[in-house]
């Protein structure tokens, strides 16, 4: 077999034609691959995929704002890269979900109304200063890492495959968030003060992450009930905070119900910006 033949034989796999924007090692599953596969998710599986996709999409939208505004060029690149990874996960989950309803990823991202989104309030929270962004990253990346690790065992092969790609990337997001939490928690008085503030600002929205829904029970082995991740998350999170000289704050929780389509006041603005151009040109392709 010549080198050319080998190249050719790989054409149908994600790796060979890996994303136009970055090559991901392993069995990179791209949204384009998912779009052409035969299997369609059930309505319930699609609803679950929408939850995973919306969290990643809104977080990507938030993080992307840091590009050209970071405290160091290296952070423009790092946060941009994390945003790009999250956007990739969102595209895969939304593409898969959309197949249940003959919709594309763009139909779901650009043409759904606010109440049809299923994102968590925590991903909708404003970036704040770098400390708030890092704290939000710490909270979410520890959660997503636990979640995607469990979802490797999902009985839905596509959910498992997307998670397999996502977990490798989220592992880096977690490392990045931990490294910065330590630097900022242990750095200066000012940075520690800002991190305590970030914790107080974000803590009210942590509870929502781990709330189970009927959907999780109904889906059985396809999904992971978020409440089952809480103990491990608490342990991991507390350990990072302790290393960083920080403490879990005692602030009230917020009744956040993003999974029911009841969102923070921020989401409307996020969507207005994200959807404006696409909606100005119905039916156009880009």
């Amino acid at each position: 077999m010549s080198a050319h033949d080998i190249d050719h034989s790989l054409d149908s796999f994600g790796d060979a034609t890996a994303s136009a924007t970055r090559v991901t090692p392993g069995n990179a599953l791209r949204p384009e691959d998912i779009a052409i596969q035969q299997e369609k998710p059930t309505d319930l599986v699609a609803q679950y995929a929408v939850r995973l996709g919306d969290d990643a999409l809104i977080l990507a939208q938030r993080l992307s704002h840091w590009i050209s505004r970071g405290p160091e060029l290296e952070e423009d690149i790092a946060l941009g890269n994390i945003a790009l990874d999250q956007l990739g996960h969102a595209r895969s989950f939304l593409t898969y979900a959309g197949k249940a309803w003959d919709k594309t990823e763009d139909d779901l991202a650009y043409w759904r109304e606010e109440e049809d989104f299923r994102s968590l309030h925590i991903v909708e929270q404003p970036n704040g200063d770098f400390g708030v962004t890092i704290m939000r990253q710490l909270i979410i990346s520890i959660y997503q890492h636990l979640l995607y690790t469990e979802l490797l065992q999902s009985s839905d092969p596509t959910i498992a495959a997307i998670s397999a790609k996502a977990v490798k990337e989220v592992d880096y997001h977690r490392d990045h968030a931990i490294a910065w939490t330590l630097r900022l928690g242990m750095g200066t008085e000012e940075s520690a003060r800002r991190m305590r503030h970030a914790l107080a600002v974000l803590w009210p929205y942590v509870g929502e992450i781990f709330e189970d829904e009927e959907l999780h029970t109904a889906l059985g082995d396809v999904a992971v009930a978020p409440s089952t991740l809480r103990a491990a998350w608490d342990e991991d999170f507390a350990s990072v905070l302790s290393d960083a000289g920080l403490e879990v704050p005692t602030v009230p929780y917020a009744m956040a119900r993003g999974r029911r389509g009841e969102h923070s006041e921020h989401l409307g603005f996020i969507l207005a910006e994200m959807q404006v151009l696409a909606r100005k040109h119905p039916g156009a392709t880009w």
């Binding site: 050209s68 290296e74 423009d76 790009l84 650009y110």
Partner: peptide, 26 residues
């Protein structure tokens, strides 16, 4: 234009491009 890119694919490409530019600067 990253936050307003009209499709998710274009958004991903634009993000990667702007990131490349930061890399070139570095």
């Amino acid at each position: 234009w990253i936050t307003r890119a009209p499709s998710l694919k274009r958004k991903a490409i634009l993000m990667a491009k702007v990131q490349d530019e930061a890399g070139h600067g570095l």
